[in-house]
Design a protein around this nucleic acid. Structure first.
Length: 470
RNA sequence: GGACCUAUGGUGUAGUCCGGUUAACACGCCUCCCUGUCACGGAGGAGAUCAGGGGUUCAAAUCCCCUUGGGUCCGCCA
């Protein structure tokens, strides 16, 4: 006998069917027992009558969250027994046979209660139980559908999805790198990519013209509610022979279609999306990621906006990879961002006044994506390196890029919306962890797997490493 | 690196400011009753060294100090 999904029972009235899933709720009356069954498709009420002695006795002893399989007849409910609140509320499954496939301990917190949620630590320790919550399941299914939609949409427009290396090179970009020691090249390290930025530009040199990737990115910085520690995903997009306007239009069309398809209850606050100059946003709203919703209490309002015309450089005041470079400037986006055509003459005379082809995508006060038209001329790239005070050694780390630029680079540019942040902002979730299956705590720990862990001395020896005692 | 918040049965909270009876409530758990429940209902029960350590006091969940765990923010995040 084949198992059917609980949602399919509606179409199987009066038939004998077998369903399987998790016990959500048990209501025992003296002569009748109700079990709410949960599977991936939804919920179903199973009825045990005491004229079926064996399944009735088993049902009486089964514990919530156990996995069971039930064979029985689908019957239509009559009169007040119909429950209009449930999609399967018009039918019951009258059990003839019950198999307990796997019993469950009493869970450490309540699965069916959304209002009284356990602490984050406990939720993460038992993440596989936490993910049984309806909301968490929906969030992750929506994430899956979102990825599917984006892939499909971009494929339909001639984009190629190309995977770039995870084991990559440490370069002095923005964030702290995750380092991976090389066993074969002792004493040397890979870095996990902070973004596939250089690879995607090199793919443009290679002639792919339209590239995308749902790319894992790694940055070893402290977490925030809207910034996961360690890793996150970006929809990384790059195109050749395009203007900034082409990128903005493409993303706007794609995300609008995404919202209409997957989030039909959400309403876009403005169409087309407003475009604000950086200076204008700062002056009017005091931030470069303004929340433009008309009514912030409306959970279904989505206020997208583009921020453009960023300054190419900002004052370099912080202690970062530019430390020690004196009163130099730092790139306000990244060092591959192209200066605006009309500002090119200022690059030599007044670089702080140069504006760039950077664009940020903002949604309800969150920066959900950023990108730019890139520099495709080696001499301008070198000039930017000089302005931000790169030493010869630092420049050398980008030699591969400058070399590539000597072999025919098309003008190109792109953008990288953050998958988690976009989904979180659309759903109105308060924390990124609500749209990630297995997130780390804000201290960068996984209470379920108990990672990170110490490794054996033998493992370290293999890598040519030792840990200083201290 | 810094600041703030926080820790009370299995879970979520009240009690802490202003020290004083058996630490309260809801959910969950266990036993019993109930033939149409769907947040089932009813009766009863078990379950907490009040995060850990030290101090003040006749007396500490409550006041003070330290430690640890958790969360949020600043720094940082091209």
């Amino acid at each position: 006998m084949q198992r059917i999904l609980s949602s399919q029972t509606i179409k199987s009235v009066s038939r004998i069917v077998t369903v399987a899933g998790w016990v959500e709720k048990i209501r025992i009356l003296s002569q009748i027992i109700f079990i709410n069954l949960r599977d991936i498709s939804g919920h179903l009420q199973i009825v045990f009558l005491n004229d079926q002695a064996e399944p009735f006795a088993k049902a009486k002893s089964v514990k919530p969250e156990s996995v069971i399989q039930v064979t029985g007849q689908v019957v239509e409910r009559i009169g007040k027994n119909i429950n209009p609140k449930q999609t399967t509320g018009r039918i019951d499954l009258i059990a003839r046979n019950l198999v307990i496939l796997c019993p469950s301990f009493t869970p450490p917190f309540e699965i069916d209660n959304e209002t009284r949620q356990a602490s984050e630590e406990l939720r993460l320790k038992y993440r596989y139980l936490d993910l049984r919550h309806e909301r968490m399941r929906q969030n992750l299914i929506l994430r899956s559908e979102m990825m599917w939609f984006l892939r499909d949409w971009l494929h339909g427009r001639g984009f190629a999805e190309i995977q770039t290396p995870i084991l990559s090179k440490s370069t002095p970009e923005g964030a702290r790198d995750y380092l991976v020691p090389s066993r074969l090249q002792k004493g040397k390290f890979f870095a996990l990519p902070q973004s596939p930025q250089q690879y995607k530009q090199l793919l443009m040199v290679a002639g792919f013209e339209k590239y995308f990737q749902i790319a894992p990115c790694f940055r070893d910085e402290d977490a925030r509610a809207d910034r996961s520690p360690g890793e996150f995903y970006q929809l990384d997009i790059e195109m050749a022979f395009i203007s900034q306007d082409d990128i903005l239009k493409l993303v706007e069309e794609m995300v609008t279609a995404l919202v209409k398809k997957l989030f039909p209850n959400k309403r876009l606050s403005q169409e087309p999306w407003p475009r604000l100059k950086h200076a204008e946003a700062m002056e009017k709203y005091g931030t470069d990621k303004p929340d433009l919703r008309k009514n912030r209490d409306n959970k279904d309002e989505l206020a997208f906006a583009w921020i453009v015309d960023f300054p190419l450089f900002t004052k370099q005041t912080k202690e970062d990879f530019f430390h020690g470079a004196g009163d130099k400037l730092a790139p306000s986006h990244h060092m591959f961002t192209a200066p605006k055509e009309e500002d090119l003459p200022l690059l030599d005379t007044a670089p702080e006044k140069v504006h760039s082809y950077q664009h940020d995508l903002v949604l309800n006060g969150f920066e959900v994506g950023g990108g730019s038209i890139r520099i495709h001329q080696a001499e301008i790239q070198e000039k930017v390196f000089d302005i931000i005070g790169f030493t010869k050694d630092q420049k050398k780390q980008f030699k591969h890029l400058l070399t590539a630029f000597q072999y025919g680079v098309p003008p190109h540019g792109g953008i990288a919306p953050g998958i988690e942040r976009l989904l979180m902002a659309i759903l109105g979730e308060k924390n990124l962890k609500e749209v990630i299956a297995f997130p780390l705590t804000s201290e960068g720990r996984d209470p379920m797997m108990d990672s990170p862990t110490k490794v054996t001395p033998a493992q370290l020896r293999d890598l040519g490493l030792r840990v200083d005692k201290g």
